[in-house]
């Protein structure tokens, strides 16, 4: 059987991938879209107040709207809810191998696989993952009712985790490895004077310990080199994100952070391979920017296909 050669293979089911698919479908280009979570990481966002036209919405609602919108283009867009293991270029065709070993072919690729939460990289982290250590406050915070928890990080994701836990946890330690928080002041103001929250600065997490579940967090004061320990029943890690670019690391030029180097039109180091959203060297990891880049990448891919004919 001859494999179908799609006009565009899109990797990523978030705002960038869905937008690219909608634009491609409207140009009557055949699309195969891969993604593990319908709607993308957006689904795990809490409240969203900066998506124009929606006022206040939430991650789940917006993710479902993206999925439903894409369904209007079912005639042109096939969807595979699965992980992509590898993408190669063989002769003039891109071959995309799923985690299940199945191969799919496309004339072009739009890569929008986003980012995933960065790990601390300390002893104990893997052993207690989901045993008190979590990377998704939106998902798991409700399980920590009345408990003593630590949030590690100082940016907006950490601040949002603290805000979510404020109504749930009994005591919250916020550990930041710098001298101050980098989160937006509007977020910090809403919790910094809450007596249940203790912010600890210059704190470098060194080890996580426990028995079945996590019980202890060891850290070092980077200013004084003093080692300290906290008794905790939960650890929320919110120290940024890393691009999901492993499947293309041998194909495409990445920057030193592992992000795809793409220009404003989504053009990368390989002709026919376009990229958009948080997997790229984007400055603003925002839903609307990802969607806009997805549009540009789709128009670039369409243009590329026309020129090749």
């Amino acid at each position: 059987m001859v494999k179908k050669n799609y006009d565009i293979i899109i990797v990523g089911y978030g705002p960038a991938g869905v937008t690219a698919a909608i634009y491609a479908a409207r140009k009557k280009l055949s699309v195969l879209l891969f993604g593990e979570l319908p709607g993308g990481e957006v689904r795990n966002s809490g409240e969203i107040e900066n998506w124009p036209g929606d006022g206040v919405t939430d991650g789940n609602t917006l993710a479902q709207k993206l999925v439903d919108h894409l369904k209007l283009h079912e005639d042109m867009v096939a969807v595979e809810v699965k992980k992509v293991a590898r993408i190669e270029k063989r002769d003039d065709v891109f071959v995309c191998t799923g985690a299940d070993g199945k191969e799919y072919q496309g004339k072009t690729v739009i890569y929008t696989a986003g980012r995933r939460p960065r790990q601390l990289g300390v002893p104990g982290e893997d052993s207690f993952r989901n045993r008190g250590i979590t990377y998704c406050a939106t998902c798991d915070a409700p399980l920590f009712q009345g408990k003593t928890v630590a949030v590690v990080g100082g940016g907006n994701t950490a601040a949002e985790a603290v805000i979510m836990l404020q109504k749930i946890a009994g005591k919250i330690y916020l550990l930041q490895n710098l001298e101050e928080l980098t989160a937006d002041p509007v977020l910090v103001d809403s919790f910094i004077n809450d007596p249940k929250i203790s912010a600890i600065f210059n704190a470098q997490v060194e080890e996580l310990g426990g028995e079945v579940m996590v019980k202890k967090l060891d850290y070092k004061d980077v200013k004084t080199n003093e080692k300290k320990s906290l008794e905790v029943e939960g650890v929320f890690v919110a120290i940024g994100a890393i691009p999901n670019t492993e499947p293309v690391k041998d194909l495409i030029k990445l920057n030193r952070f592992g992000a795809i180097e793409a220009d404003r039109y989504g053009v990368t180091s390989v002709p026919g391979f376009f990229a958009a959203g948080d997997a790229t060297n984007i400055r603003d990891a925002q839903i609307i920017v990802a969607a806009g880049q997805g549009c540009s990448a789709a128009l670039s891919a369409g243009d590329y296909l026309v020129r090749k004919q």
């Binding site: 319908p38 957006v42 689904r43 795990n44 789940n60 998704c136 998902c139």
Partner: peptide
């Protein structure tokens, strides 16, 4: 599940 968890919502969908 929890009310806010996106993976839970995707599974229920």
């Amino acid at each position: 599940s929890t009310q806010t968890c996106g993976y839970c919502k995707a599974a229920k969908e």
